[in-house]
Design a protein around this nucleic acid. Sequence first.
DNA 1: TGTACATCAGTGAACGCGCGTTCACTGATGTAC
DNA 2: TGTACATCAGTGAACGCGCGTTCACTGATGTAC
Lengths: 187, 187
Amino acid sequence: MRYSAGHKAETHDRILAAASKKFRAGGIADVGIAGIMADSGLTNGAFYAHFASKDDLIRQSVVETLEEQRRAMLSQLPDHDLRALVTDYLSPGHRDSPEDGCPSAAVLAEIGRGPAGLKQAYRDTLAPTLELIESLVTGDQATAHARATAIFAVLVGTMQLSRAMADPVEADAVLESGIEAAVSLAA
Amino acid sequence: MRYSAGHKAETHDRILAAASKKFRAGGIADVGIAGIMADSGLTNGAFYAHFASKDDLIRQSVVETLEEQRRAMLSQLPDHDLRALVTDYLSPGHRDSPEDGCPSAAVLAEIGRGPAGLKQAYRDTLAPTLELIESLVTGDQATAHARATAIFAVLVGTMQLSRAMADPVEADAVLESGIEAAVSLAA
DNA sequence: TGTACATCAGTGAACGCGCGTTCACTGATGTAC
DNA sequence: TGTACATCAGTGAACGCGCGTTCACTGATGTAC
């Protein structure tokens, strides 16, 4: 059948959203195209009308998810409060819903092993998020940038560590240690 | 042919060492048994005389590599200097040789998605390493433990972030920001 | 106004390939008789 | 002392399966005549 204007763009976005969830839930290497397409309500073959390859999908998915994360951070933080941001990020809810959570916590190590184009796209799209954190931190620009980078590293490392704890009490304690550390790094 | 006593244990260790390198270099999901066996100088079929399954290998490999890392940290740190440990961990050499580096920086997110047995083994084997960091940190036991956990999270998060930077200058700057942050978290 | 055709998003089977795992077999050795 | 056999680490082909990717085809629609 012929489709209305914008239909293809909608399908593209739907595939991207399904891929983003699956990549965050299961990692990039372990997630296949057939499953992503099934989650999008489509079959295998339609994939290549929308993306050049799995690598292309990965890049677009990472970029889109990082932008979405930045928009969410912006809208939830009208008060410029670092502790609020950190507490929200290092919450049990975020830990237990990786499919809706931070892409960096889910696939940063895989990006580090990926092609240069993916790494470049990651860096460029993450930059505004780091600037957002930078604006919540004291010190001149260079100091603030370094502090924001380190805070982001605590958030990601702490989330991964908490997710790796089998014991829920210990997993919560890991989050708490990360919150105090991240806040203390701001000044 | 029949083999000398201890031969099988040597082969087992050789497979474990090959797997450890490959998992750290390429992630767990993307590394196959055939490649590990080839690197060990053996063929596919011999694998199941040494390990019950790939999951079994993963668990043993993670445990062995964590223990090795702790031994290395101990031997390189007779002076109880946190800055030395942190600078060594967040060095360009470590970043550029993941196959010989920290298993947590390479596969922590994958462990978080793994079976409960793997997570339990990770936690139990990581504990002495965290205690080692704890001994380099001020505060009562609970505080020191929280600080050590957060320092470990900065190390892992910073290493992953540095590896994801395509630009070497920026990658080095990420390491620097992590060093200062980790040291400042000690007190 | 009615009909033939071009368009194109999506279908679904097939491609070659590598995965984890199984298994019948090899062959050098220590041991039993 | 010499020979037959049990042992067992390792071989290499095969299993079913799912991967990323390709492609001939479908079929509803807008458009041209």
